[in-house]
C-alpha cells in the first residue's frame, strides 16, 4: 500500500515534468498541426546545451536553460520557415513528407550530439541533484520537486500567454480559422512562425528539467516521442491544462507499472496509452478535426 502511495506521489511529480516537456509539442502539433517528431530531439539537444554550460561554466542548470531560451526561439523560427516554404506552401501531403522531414532532422541532431559529446550518459551538478526530501516513509528526490515546480510555473505562464496576450490569442485564432485572421489583416504565417518559436523556446527550460531529472544520452529522444505525443494526443490537441492532466495520468501510470512490474516495461506504457487513445479516437482524443 505504501509502495503504491509512493508510486502515485512520484507519478504525479513525474507527470508534471512530462507536461513541461510536452508543452511545446502541444503548441506545434496540437495547435499548428505540424507533425513535429523532432520535438524530443530538440529537447535532448537543449539538455546537452545545459550540460555544456553547467560543466564548463558551472552555471546552474535552470539558469542555463533560461539562457538558451532565445537561441531555441531562433531555432524554432528558422525550422518553421523551412517547413512552411517546403511543405505547407506547396500544400499536397505535407503530413507524409513533413513527418519524414522531421525524422531526418531528429537523426541529424542525434548524430551531431554523438559526434560532439559521445554516446555516454551525461548529467549535471547542482545542489538539488542527488538529494531527497523525507516525509515519514516517503522519499521524494529534490530534482523531481524542482521539475514539478518549474513545470507548474511553465504551464501557467504559457496558459496565461495564450489566453491573455494579443499574440497568444492570435495563435489560438490561427489554429481555428486561418482565413478569418487573414481577413483581419494579420499574416497567419507570421503568427504561426512566432508560435513555433515559442514552442521551441520552451524547450530550453524543458531540456534543463530533462537533464535534472535523469542523465541524458543522445538517443533519449526516441523514448520521448512516445511520451510527448501520448500526452498531447491524450490532452486533446492544443489544450494546455489538458496537457498537464494527461501528463499526470501518464506519469502515474508509468510510475505504478514501474513499481509493480519493473523498469523493463516502462518504455511501452506511453506508447500503449497512445495507441489505445488513437484506436478509440482515430483523430485524437478530443480532435478538433472533423
Amino acid at each position: 500500500m505504501d509502495l503504491l502511495l509512493d508510486a502515485v506521489v512520484i507519478g504525479v511529480l513525474l507527470g508534471c515534468f512530462y507536461g513541461a516537456v510536452s508543452l511545446g509539442l502541444s503548441v506545434s502539433f496540437g495547435l499548428l498541426d505540424v507533425p513535429h517528431v523532432a520535438h524530443p530531439a530538440f529537447l535532448v539537444l537543449a539538455s546537452y546545451f545545459v550540460y555544456f554550460l553547467n560543466e564548463h561554466y558551472a552555471i546552474d542548470p535552470l539558469v542555463a536553460g533560461l539562457l538558451i531560451t532565445p537561441l531555441f526561439f531562433a531555432f524554432g523560427l528558422v525550422a518553421y520557415r523551412i517547413y512552411y516554404e517546403t511543405f505547407e506552401k506547396r500544400g499536397s501531403d505535407a503530413g507524409v513528407r513533413g513527418i519524414a522531414f522531421f525524422f531526418g532532422v531528429a537523426f541529424i541532431i542525434e548524430v551531431l550530439i554523438i559526434m560532439q559529446f559521445g554516446v555516454d550518459q551525461r548529467s549535471v551538478t547542482a545542489d538539488y541533484v542527488g538529494k531527497a526530501l523525507r516525509l515519514g516513509d516517503l522519499r521524494i528526490p529534490y530534482r523531481l520537486l524542482v521539475a514539478f515546480g518549474v513545470a507548474a510555473v511553465l504551464t501557467i505562464l504559457l496558459t496565461l500567454y495564450l489566453s491573455r496576450t494579443f499574440m497568444g490569442r492570435a495563435i489560438r485564432a490561427v489554429a481555428q480559422d486561418q482565413e478569418a485572421l487573414r481577413l483581419m489583416g494579420t499574416n497567419p504565417i507570421r503568427i504561426k512562425q512566432w508560435a513555433f518559436g515559442i514552442a521551441t523556446a520552451v524547450l530550453g527550460v524543458a531540456g534543463a528539467l530533462l537533464i535534472i531529472v535523469a542523465p541524458v544520452e543522445p538517443t533519449l529522444d526516441r523514448a520521448y516521442i512516445g511520451r510527448t505525443f501520448c500526452v498531447v494526443v491524450m490532452a486533446g490537441l492544443g489544450s494546455m491544462s489538458g496537457t498537464l492532466v494527461a501528463a499526470i495520468i501518464l506519469g502515474v501510470a508509468e510510475s505504478i507499472v514501474l513499481t509493480m512490474f519493473g523498469a523493463s516495461w516502462a518504455p511501452a506504457i506511453s506508447f500503449a496509452m497512445l495507441l489505445g487513445v488513437l484506436a478509440v479516437r482515430p483523430q485524437g482524443l478530443f480532435g478538433r478535426r472533423s
Binding site: V37, V96, G98, A268, F271, L275, L278, Q283, G284, R289
Partner: peptide, 17 residues
C-alpha cells in the same frame, strides 16, 4: 482508420510495444 500522421505515430508505438 487513422489519418496521416496519426497512422505513422501509431506504427511507431506498435514497434516500441
Amino acid at each position: 482508420r487513422m489519418q496521416g500522421i496519426f497512422f505513422s505515430i501509431a506504427t511507431i508505438a506498435l514497434t516500441i510495444i
